[in-house]
């Protein structure tokens, strides 16, 4: 099984997941930091990497019911971090707590410490609106606004007050999302006329246009066909040159293909099976999780024995 997966990974074209896994799994381990400091900080040994998020004993509950319990992990700068696990394990909940989208559910409560570059995301002076400006999000189902393609991209910069020539901002965002050539002649068309894959890339463009530091992606490909999925995966690998990306996915191959780090969460039950919540089982380099997991539950899940 593990073998199959490695093959699957190495079959993917160059300049994609295969390389990243190689890099992450040790190429830079002994490298002198002075040679390529930037990459060392991103792909080198964990203790030297720059942290975007530091989660310490994070629990999220809805109206008293625990959804995620006691998660501690570091999410690294300009890495793609995948959250995987069976449905109901709270991976989306965890993701949404990173940019305070959980605030929209009145009964949601986040405990523990959740730091973004050392600053508490749930600190008393922190403004959720500003958090979401810095930490963008792409959703499971493409959700373009019922407006023109142009207005979809321009909405964020306009409302957040980003200065500059709007046409340039829109073009730049669409280019980075790999959508410019497809839509440059129909910027005034309604976004609902696009294909699902295009809509999702538009949502990514929309997110980029606000110039975030981090992009959170909540199962961004689950509503898309394989070809659109492949395009978005390629796009993610390009985007990580500039942004830190956290992706929730139920597709293990996807996690293996694109991510540098993988966190495996699982559903835990109380003895009487009355309540359930998600817990972090294992978090490590993607190559390690998929080739040599440290926990038997991870191995069972990855090899398809459970979940």
């Amino acid at each position: 099984m593990t073998n199959n997966l490695t093959q699957e990974i190495t079959r993917t074209p160059p300049r994609s997941a295969g390389d990243d896994i190689k890099e992450a799994s040790g190429v830079y381990d002994q490298t002198d930091i002075s040679v390529r400091p930037e990459e060392f900080r991103q792909r080198g040994p964990a203790e030297h990497r720059e942290k975007t998020f530091e989660l310490r004993n994070v629990s999220v509950s809805y109206g008293g019911n625990r959804a995620v319990h006691d998660v501690s992990m570091d999410i690294f700068h300009k890495n793609i971090t995948a959250l995987i696990g069976p449905s109901g394990c709270g991976k989306s909940t965890l993701l949404r707590s990173l940019n305070r989208m959980n605030d929209l559910v009145p009964s949601a409560k986040v405990e523990g410490s959740l730091l973004y570059h050392g600053a508490d995301i749930y600190g008393p002076k922190v403004d959720p609106v500003q958090v979401r400006k810095v930490i963008g999000m792409v959703f499971q189902k493409p959700n373009p606004f019922p407006k023109s393609i142009y207005d979809n991209v321009a909405f964020g910069p306009r409302t957040t007050g980003i200065k500059g020539d709007m046409d340039d901002i829109v073009e730049e965002a669409l280019r980075r999302a790999g959508l410019w050539d497809e839509v440059k002649d129909r910027l005034d068309d309604n976004a609902y006329g696009m294909s699902g894959g295009q809509q999702q890339r538009l949502c990514i463009a929309r997110c980029i246009a606000v110039e975030p530091d981090v992009i959170l992606m909540d199962e961004p490909c689950s509503a898309l066909d394989p070809i659109s999925t492949a395009r978005i995966e390629d796009l993610m690998l390009e985007l990580k040159e500039r942004y830190s990306i956290v992706i929730v996915t139920h597709n293990m191959q996807q996690a293996a293909r694109v991510s540098d780090m993988t966190a495996f969460l699982m559903v835990e039950l109380t003895a009487d099976e009355k309540s359930r919540w998600g817990e972090l089982i294992e978090y490590d380099d993607t190559s390690k999780i998929f080739t040599n997991p440290g926990d038997s539950r991870t191995e069972d899940y990855i090899s398809g024995r459970v979940g």
Binding site: E50, Y116, H117, A119, V126, Q130, V131, V134
Partner: peptide, 10 residues
């Protein structure tokens, strides 16, 4: 690691 200070204010 490097850069413990926030990139942008929250």
């Amino acid at each position: 690691g490097a850069g413990n200070s926030p990139r942008r204010s929250l």
